[in-house]
Amino acid sequence: MTRTPHLTMLWEQHDPAVQLRDRFGFPDAAAAGDWVARSVERHWGVRVEACERITMSSRNALAALRTPLGPLIAKWSVASDVFPRLSALATLTSWLERQRLPVSAPVAAVDGRLQVELDGTSIGLQRRIDGDLLDTADPAQLRAAGAVLARLHRALAAYPDAGRVADLVPHPKTPGTSIAGWLADAPGHLPDPACDVLRRLLSSAPGMTLPGQLVHGDIRSANVLCAESGVAAVLDFEEMRWDRPVVELARSAVLLGTRFRDWGPVGTDVHTALLEGYCSERPLDGVETHWWRVLVLWYSLLMIPDGPDPTGWRAAALRLSGAAPAALP
């Protein structure tokens, strides 16, 4: 193998060489690249011509590889407590690909495993999917992302082994309980008018009788690759949880513009375009419609920092609370 990989942090402001040593136990980039190349050749039978880049986030790492099969991505974790979940999610993602969902499915190892545990890590291999991060200024991409999210929710609801995954992922409280508890002790830096609107919406909300199911957990621009006006792939299922689809839809609408180091709000036109695409595949019922309005405002308020607000989350929440809710198609 040639070329020492370039080291980067996905979003943290740390020295990547230090983190590679302290978190992953490699003395330098060359040693990490050699380990990845040897692991891929041994377990997948694929020769690595170059490990071009290693990107780290928390206790996870991703290596961009050049191989005779084309560009591949090796992802590994040293967080042993999540190894069973990573294995279950690899199986689920492979199943989603067979349902014709646009996902980055794992490449099976020589022995058939989709996630391999070795040297204190859990590692998987994927093909690189060409595309650009979702552009929230492109209405066609937004509608396409909404439609794919609806299809993903429908597929996840039908996953045959959902019970196994459900035992391994977080189960948040129902939104009514979560929001009521949060409002009872809302941080003092939040705008009172927007909090008052949220209280009124919550008080008139119907009971959340909708069943929970598996949801992606982290739909945002950084995890949606697009090609022209369509979705090429939904990435990174590691944050999967058990929740209501409308909760994920609302959270995704608010956070859709966030990337790795850019956490600014989007406008209600973006919310509406995502919602239109979603409803083209899975229309919301009356209960979900009300909760969509509650949840979009709540998630917007949650993002307001206690201190400088350079991207304008406070102004966005105030506009949202004072404007008519996004219209349903």
Rank of each mutant, 00 (worst) to 15 (best):
L328K: 04
V246G: 10
A323V: 13
A323I: 12
F260H: 01
D262K: 10
V224S: 06
P310D: 10
A273C: 01
L249Y: 03
G267I: 01
A315T: 15
S221D: 07
G267A: 08
R241P: 07
T268V: 02
L255P: 02
D243N: 11
G257W: 02
P325T: 13
P325L: 12
P310N: 13
W313V: 01
L297N: 02
Y278R: 07
G230D: 11
R259D: 06
L320V: 04
A232Q: 05
G307Q: 13
D269P: 08
V231C: 06
Y278T: 06
A326F: 05
R220N: 10
H290P: 01
L328N: 04
L256N: 01
L256M: 06
A326L: 04
P245R: 07
F237A: 05
L284W: 08
M303A: 14
V266N: 13
E248Y: 10
L235D: 04
A315P: 07
S252F: 03
F260R: 01
L301H: 13
W291Y: 06
C226I: 05
E288Y: 08
N223T: 14
M240D: 09
V231R: 04
P305D: 00
T272Q: 14
W242Y: 13
R293F: 00
R241S: 15
S280E: 15
L275V: 00
A250G: 14
V270I: 08
L301C: 10
G230L: 07
E239I: 11
Y299N: 12
G286K: 15
S221M: 10
L284D: 07
R259S: 11
L297F: 05
A323L: 12
V246P: 03
L284Y: 08
L275F: 00
D218G: 14
R251Q: 03
G286P: 15
F237E: 04
W298K: 14
D236Q: 14
S280A: 15
A233L: 01
E276M: 00
E281N: 12
W292D: 01
L302W: 06
T258D: 10
R293M: 00
V224E: 05
S221L: 09
I304D: 05
L249V: 05
P305E: 00
E228S: 13
G307I: 14
E248P: 04
D306M: 03
F260V: 01
E281C: 12
A253G: 03
Y278V: 04
R314L: 11
V266K: 12
L320P: 03
S280M: 15
Y299I: 11
A317E: 01
S252G: 04
V231H: 04
R293Y: 00
A317R: 01
G267K: 02
S300H: 09
D285S: 00
D236N: 14
L328C: 08
S229E: 10
C279I: 04
W263G: 12
L301W: 05
G267L: 03
D262Y: 10
Y299E: 11
V231M: 07
R251G: 03
R259A: 09
G307P: 12
W291T: 07
